[in-house]
Amino acid sequence: MALSILPTADDSRTNATFDELMWALARPGLVRILPLAGFETLAESLIDRECSFHAGSDSVLAKRLAETGARPVSLDKADYVFTTLGSERDVAAVSTLRIGTLAYPDEAATLFAPARIGSGQALRLSGPGIKDILTIEIGGVDPSFWPMREKAIRYPLGWDLYLVDGDRLIGIPRSTKIEVL
């Protein structure tokens, strides 16, 4: 059995991206560095014809994401949502994200959104993956987002969040409690 031992460039990139996605969620609020900036890199390591997605109003992104084989669907049905949270309208839209069911809380959405990491609203995080507590600052996200999240998540029901700033990434799973300071 001849086996290939070395990963291709694609293998390495998707593997490294997932590494960051995984650690970002395992250690909420800590900044991880992606091998490449952009939603497409995140998408190629995660989604394919077995998933659905929603790309907000970004039709160029929607086209690129569709190349993974994933199905574009409306926001309230999507497994993976890539959208901005800059305005109150954006936030109102994502209030319909899937939160799963008690039997299958994994059937919930994952939200990827651009944000400014390191300046802006101070947030105090606690929960699994966080040693004691952690305070982070996030900008570029409408203030209405945090109370909306608080209301939407009824653990273990809820959605998981990634904030992306260029090649920088933080993860905030539904298990994280957020206190707006």
């Binding site: 694609d10 293998d11 998707t14 995984m22 390591s45 995660l46 989604i47 994994d106 539904r174």
Partner: peptide, 24 residues
Amino acid sequence: FNYGFLDESAKRELRRRILKAIAV
């Protein structure tokens, strides 16, 4: 065979599941 034996679509599925497992 692929690097790591599993093909990329199998890995993507596992990645999605692992992330959910960490979240809950």
